[in-house]
Design a protein around this nucleic acid. Structure first.
Lengths: 304, 304
DNA sequence: TGCTTCGGTTTAGTTTTACTTAAGTGGCAT
DNA sequence: ATGCCACTTAAGTAAAACTAAACCGAAGCA
């Protein structure tokens, strides 16, 4: 049946044989025997090609699907006692702005763990997609998974030091080039520019300026001096610590949404997963001082 | 892997071996080899039982699922050129009141076809549930299947001849024992007792009387002389023809919902499916005279 | 037209695998 | 204790899957 699966996918016995590391002869035989068991042909043999018969078209999708679940289950099971590789999925922004800059450090602390990143926004199925850990931004809780929040999240305007000198006060921001991060539009209550201006007592609804669908691109733009962006704590904390960006106005807007560390229930204590979790939490602990001197206003208090 | 699938389902190597018609020794060996490939045990061997390990629990659902799709695909494919058995699903009412009484006749006309009935209301998946034909009551059309309507459907009060003498006019029905068939409550516009009374110009909303969730039970009750039921044409036509039930008032309520013959696209011309379809249509054709003398009023014309 | 190439099939022989029989083990129930 | 039951192990055997090599027919190309 594997033979048929491969043949149907490739629509070629020769290619299928290559995939399974056997000779075309073996494959031909297998399919012939399958056809005998079935009592009807699965392929129509053309001169230098094959095509599926009605029966083949009926059988192929189910077989392909079955082998896919079979192999992914198998791999998921193998991963259970493999503590050398760890597949992590996170959104593109967290991957680029939090994970990537700290990765060399994790690699040094845990040289035995081989981290692999899958940057994607869609929710993954841990069993289907061969993923061990997901880091996701949103509202908890996750009933069916093990999930811990990574930090309370807030947003505050950040910019290059140069720009900060030109716009020393919140009021001056009404004349400043603002960058829009559309990736947090889904938050409710909103954490956008109008909400922040309400938090500092200014009635101003900016509309003009570059917009980005991904938060990391918005932050990159701010780093390039394009303008001022409402940066999420987790995504800008490193740039703030290292002085590439500054937050001058002392007012941040907090949201109930936060980054969460998610893994299948029961997997949270497997050594490499625990190592990653502990390391992430420790890294975040190191940066709690970024909130010092900030007045943090819940977004719901300034909801329109 | 089949070995593991069977063992995990039975939680016993001996039973699994029996299922696969091999000796327990062979099964033990297969699982051992699987565990070696995996690098970890799948079962914990207890004294006179086995239990799944973490790894086994991870692998089992996927494997079971995969083999299920595999076997059902296989059977679906076998059915393709098997014109000796025909699996039909219909609602319980149609099965009992239309199919069952006519079955001996189909068997005589087509002794080579072995009909199997699956009475169920839920929609079946032709590939998953090993069903060739479905007969369903409702509104068309079915875009993804081949479907033909079997007849225009209407409802009219039916009862035993005895009861008919006691309640000769629609007006007299307000004093008669009425039976409620809840299985057509979902129709819109409704085809219930209030709608029928509106059709004959009587303002009467009966509330008291036996209720049945399945139409065949309601008709059975009427056959037993319990009372008068609003019978769907397809379900009472045979009893009307053979005099066990009568319809006296000459007013029927028609609905756009009807019984439909449904099968996968392309399957409608396979010989045994065509035979069943032609036979059903011919049977219905024989009973068109049941509508003679009836004034048929669309249900939407008397909607409240 | 005739030669080559390419996919697939066939045949015969070989390797691998799966299976069976039979003996063995260990804890549970009587 | 002792027999039993479910699983394991070992050795031998039967079946299957696979390979190599020859073959076949049509398409491509000179």
């Amino acid at each position: 049946m594997r033979a048929f699966d491969a043949a149907a996918r490739h629509m070629s016995f020769a290619k299928a044989a290559e995939e399974l590391n056997v000779t075309p002869a073996a494959l031909s035989f297998q399919i012939k025997s399958l056809e005998e068991h079935l009592g009807q042909p699965l392929f129509r043999r053309l001169n230098r090609a094959v095509e599926l018969t009605e029966a083949g078209r009926t059988l192929a999708p189910g077989v392909e699907d079955a082998f896919q679940t079979l192999t992914s289950s198998w791999r998921a099971t193998r991963r259970l006692h493999d503590t050398t590789t760890l597949n992590v999925t996170a959104g593109p922004a967290f991957t680029a702005k939090w994970m990537a800059p700290r990765l060399y450090q994790f690699a040094q602390e845990h040289p035995e763990i081989d981290l692999r990143f899958i940057a994607s926004l869609r929710m993954m199925d841990f069993n289907r997609d061969e993923v061990d850990v997901a880091i996701r931004f949103g509202y908890g809780p996750d009933a069916e998974y093990f999930a811990i929040p990574l930090a309370n999240e807030w947003v505050t305007p950040v910019m290059t030091p140069d720009l900060a000198e030109r716009f020393p006060t919140p009021e001056s921001l009404t004349k400043a080039p603002l960058i829009f991060d559309d990736s947090i539009n889904f938050l409710d209550p909103p954490c956008d520019w109008p909400a922040w201006f309400r938090a500092v007592g200014i009635s101003y609804i900016p509309t003009h300026g570059p917009r980005f669908s991904q938060a990391d691109h918005a932050v990159d733009a701010a780093l390039a001096g394009v303008g001022i962006v409402l940066g999420r704590r987790a995504l800008v904390v490193k740039d703030l610590f290292e002085g590439r960006l500054v937050a001058r106005y002392g007012i941040a807007l907090s949201t109930k949404a936060h980054f969460r560390f998610v893994c299948p229930k029961g997997a949270e204590n497997r050594p490499h997963i625990k190592a990653l979790r502990d390391w992430i939490l420790a890294e975040i602990e190191k940066t709690t001082s970024v909130s010092e001197g900030l007045t943090i206003i819940p977004a719901e208090d300034v909801a329109p």
